[in-house]
Structures are given as C-alpha cells and as structure tokens.
Design a protein around this nucleic acid. Sequence first.
DNA 1: TTGTAAGCGTTATCAA
DNA 2: TTGATAACGCTTACAA
Lengths: 357, 357
Amino acid sequence: MGDGKPATIYDVAARAGVSKSLVSLVLQRSPRVSEQRRTAVLTAIAELDYRPSTAAVSLAGTRSRTIGVVLDDFRNQWFVDLLTGLRESLQDQGHRLVVADRFLNTGLDASPVEGFLSMRVEGIVIAGEPDADLAVPASMPVVVAGGRGGLARADTVANDDFAGGRMAAEHLIALGHVRLGFVGGRSAASVVRLAGWRAGIEAAGGTVRTPRVDGEPDREAVPTTSAPAGADVTGVATVLQADVTEETGFTATRRLLVEHPEVTAVFAANDVTALGVMSAVAERGLRVPEDVSVVGYDDTPIAATHYVGLTSIDDRSVDIGRGAGEQLLARIEDPSRPAREHLVEPRLIARRTTAAR
Amino acid sequence: MGDGKPATIYDVAARAGVSKSLVSLVLQRSPRVSEQRRTAVLTAIAELDYRPSTAAVSLAGTRSRTIGVVLDDFRNQWFVDLLTGLRESLQDQGHRLVVADRFLNTGLDASPVEGFLSMRVEGIVIAGEPDADLAVPASMPVVVAGGRGGLARADTVANDDFAGGRMAAEHLIALGHVRLGFVGGRSAASVVRLAGWRAGIEAAGGTVRTPRVDGEPDREAVPTTSAPAGADVTGVATVLQADVTEETGFTATRRLLVEHPEVTAVFAANDVTALGVMSAVAERGLRVPEDVSVVGYDDTPIAATHYVGLTSIDDRSVDIGRGAGEQLLARIEDPSRPAREHLVEPRLIARRTTAAR
DNA sequence: TTGTAAGCGTTATCAA
DNA sequence: TTGATAACGCTTACAA
C-alpha cells in the first residue's frame, strides 16, 4: 500500500489487460461485461486500491449527482435531523450530499451557493429561512426546507407552525388550564405559531387578548381577571420586539407573571425562550409544572434531556428532510413543475413541564 | 441571466477576444497581464456569470486545495467551534473545507475518508476519537483533533484533560469543599480527567479513594467518613462500566450520595453526565449549589444556558481547530515531519452550579 | 504580455 | 462484448 500517486483508470486497465473503456463499464455496473473481464478488473482495482477521481467523473460525465445543502448555521441542531431525512431521499438514490453553512467557504466563494454552482451541483437545498442575498440562478432546482417564502419559484417543505401552536393550546386546555400566556417574537414562524395557539383557544370557546407588542402600552382593556365564571379560557400574548432569546423570554415572562398572575400555563415560541420562561417562573418562587406549565417548540436536544424535560412541539425535521429531498428530485426530473408548499404536521412531545391544573 | 449551460472559459475568452490561457491567468491573479486585457476578461466574466468548474480546476491543476474534515457525529456540538478554528487556519490560507460525518455519504463511499480520497483532498482532519476502521493511506497527511491516539503517525491536537480535571478539583477546593465526588466512565478522556482531578486533590494534601468500578463491591476500606480533622480533602470516584450518559450519571450519583452523604461537590466527566448528577441531587431534596456544587466538562451550549448555568471546563475547541489546521498545513509542507501531540490548556467557566461551602 | 498545445482522469460515442 | 477516440473545462509548459 505504498501510495505514491493515486492509481488511475489507465493503471487498472493495464493491470487487468483490458481497455480503459471496459474498466469504466465495470465501474458503472454495466451488465454487458463478461464475468471473466469483470472479475479481472475488480481484482486489479482492489490490488491497486483504485478510486475514481470525482473531479474527472463529474467533468466527463453528464451529471454530477451532487446536491448542495446550505445550512443557515451549524449551531441550529435541527439540521441534524434534516440531514437524516435528506440522506434517506437523496443519498439513497445515489446522490452525493455536500453541506455548508453560511460561512463555510467564504473568502473562496462569495457564498455557499457560489461554491455549489462551481461544483455544478444538480440541485440545492436551503435549510431554514433563505437569505435574500442567496443568489440562485433561475435554472437551478432549489427547495427550501424548514423555512418559508424567500424564493418564490422554490418548492417549500416546512413545519406546520399553525398546527403546532394549536396543539400547544389544546394540550394545555385539555390539562384544565384556562388562563394561558404566550411569549414569542416577530419572526414568521413565531407569528404563525401564535396564530395557531389563538385558534386553539378560540376553538375551545375562549378569547385571546390581541397580541401585545412588548414595550408599548396596552391599548385594549380586556377583562382577563374578571373573566366569566366556568371554564372560559383566555389568553394573553406577549410579542417581543427584539429577537426571542432566553434572556428576552425571561424578562418578558417576568412581566407577564406580574401583570397576569392568574396565568398557569405558558407557551413559548421556541425551546430556548421556554428556558427563559422557566427561569422567570422559578424567580417568582413558583414551580414548574405544579404552579405553571410550560410548552416549548422545536423539540431541541436540550428539551429532551431529563434534567430539563421540556414539553415541546416536535417539528419532525426528519420528515421535512425526506420530503425536501423528494421535492428536489421531482423538480430535477421536471424543471417546469410548478412550485408548491408542503406542510409537515408537527407533534407534541409531553414531558415534565406540563401537568394538570 | 437566462442560464442554459454554465459558461466555460472558452465563452469568456471568446467574449473578451483573448485566448483561454489569458483568462486562466486572470483567474489566478497573475501580475503579468495587461490592465486592458484584464478588465476585458473581468467584464466578460461578470457578463456571462462565469464560475470556474471546480472539477476541471482540480483535474487540471496540481493541487486540489481541499481539506476533508471527518466528524464523528454532527450531534456533538463541539465541532462547531472546531470548524471555526479550522476556518481560521485553513480556509483563510486558501483551502476549501469539506465536512462529513461518519454517515454522510455512506452507500456511495464506504466511509467519509473514501469520499475524500476520491476528491483527492490534500489532507484530512479527523475530529474526535478516530475510528479504527478509518483506513487512511500512509501518504495522506492527517491530523487528529480533539481525540487521542488511534493513528500513530498522525499529529494530534487535543484538550489537556489532565489539566482540566485538576482545575475542577482546584476550583472546588478553593471554594472550601473537602469531600469531593467524581462520576465518569472508562473512555480515554474520562480516565485522564479523573487522573487530573485526583492530582488536584493530592496536591492539596488530600487523598482519593481508588476509582471504584460501578457494580463491583468496594475492595478498599478508605475511611472517608472518619477523615482526620481539619481541612483534609478526600475524594470518592465512581467509574461507570457502561457509557456515561445523563441516565447512568443519575443512577451513579444517586448511589454516591447515599453511600457518601458527606460529599458536597461532584465533578462529572462531561456536561450531559452533570445533568444526571444534578437530577440526582434534586431527587434527594438537595439544592445546587447550596448543598452540592457540580462541575461538568466540555462547556456545551446546554451548560451555557442561563437556565442550566453549569460550571464547566471549556476545552477551547476553537484553539484546537486552529492548531489542528496549522499542524496539517505543516505536514502537507513537510510529510517527513515527525508526528507530535499538542495539548491545549482548557479553562474553567464558573457559573451558577458551584458555590462556596 | 499573449497564444498554442499538451495533458489531467473520466465518460460517451462509435465502430469493430 | 470490447476498444478507439473524442470530448469535458481547466492548468501549464513552451513558444511567440
């Protein structure tokens, strides 16, 4: 195995005593090769530790059989599940996956998309909200996975945030909670999750205070405390101006609990925010879930730890990935195909932060 | 921008009215090209939205300028920081980074290393403990980042686990703790961290009960409870047979706290285990850090959340990445260079789970 | 400073 | 079923 230069197809052909065309046929598993020659070639390949050069293959071949995956940020763990799904639908179909986050090869390429174009990928998967400055040529098949809008002509496969928000509300109401709170931001996902949550409450005959933007005084005087008797459900929503983080989730919840001490269940637009919510609950000397139930969104690994044990909405990233791969394949087959938006139904994972009231 | 086939160097040459060699020279920023021609070429490139084919470039060129990074698992978040460091030392030097985890293109390639060999990468970074079956040809420059051993001939850049373990002990002792516990497994990293912790205790004049393997009865009868008066420090270590997880960390700690109720500080071999430790402490009705202090290792994102706020040892993955890139570059320059092992000094990040006794 | 021409390691198109 | 031979898009001597 004293590797000097890697063996080429010529070396294999010479060693097997055949032409390089024949070697190429064997490589492509052509059925019309005699068993004898085939084994001779295979033996030579093994002996020489030969491996086709991907550069030569994609240069000479008609297709690169490569798909580029653009991640918004490697830190967003959800891409792990997304990749699992993509592998199922793409890799198993003989496509090679190349992943890059927004910064992976900047400096060499202007953007990960640029790099993929240089590689002559056959399609691109954009994970998360597509950046506006991600210039993808019109002729390149693209699918947006997990994000919405952005590229009009692209297929989209995303979580059904509305359904997820509604699930959160239904779960809490089923547990007997009637005074609900919401903490989220102004991102597209958060807004739709809030709408779903509101719909869940209204479906139960309840009312929701119009989303209040944090920092602005409340215009509406909804009598949440003097609510009608019975099981009437009411909700108060806090929509943060700034990014929703653990920190802002904490301060927003602190305020929410002061202004609405009747709230016994909070739905946070994402898991990290939910951590802030839980800290705020603890700070007031209340316990989760005995005094206040908390639901997050995304079902991140941190929610799944026993220590945190956060009830959360699983956005089914694996299925989103699989679906995205299938859509991309379909578009590569038929580029004229109209772009569609596909929603994946999320599911609620009940853990230790929610309990009956 | 009606892209049909991507433009080639021929198209650019024709449009600019020059030879394709001249275009190539411009691409390589050769200084000996007249300003006039250069702008003509650059204009043509822009107009045609031309992008060199990486396949053709690496096939025709002498070097691929590509480095492969093998991750053990995308779920181990530490690779994010590692990549940051690698970008600094490699990408900024004009190298392209291609990342893959153990499963990324299996089916197409036998292993990520196979894929990289096909791509004719100039070097490979193996992140984490190298798999034994990762067959890397002797002639391929390799550096192991964050793991130890495995490939004898490879340079290694890793966290100084011994120093980290010692830091944990010193931190706790400085806070006044004298009855210390350890929970870890039998992985190389865990064993060394334990050794460092022990050294820290011994340096303070203390003694450590010989690591006890969980499940086996204690052979040694070290009088930890009847310790000499004064500030004598003692430690009890539990070494798990099975993998250290949140679950096993929990059960091991539960037992530790029963058998050694005098323990007021626990050092866990990693952050996830530390979560199990904290659950076990809570289960006994004790509080962190008022009753028991807890230190983790790796400084994972979960430790950094305010909600968890785990004091942890930061293994400085960014620096490991930068160092690994530098070592790899040096080896590519001089393949005969003897392999060395480089240790990066970790640092303790004090948060809310440790307090003075 | 610019152009010509010979590769680089494959696949693909013909003939044989 | 096999083998020439021409691409593929670029780099790189070598000439001019």
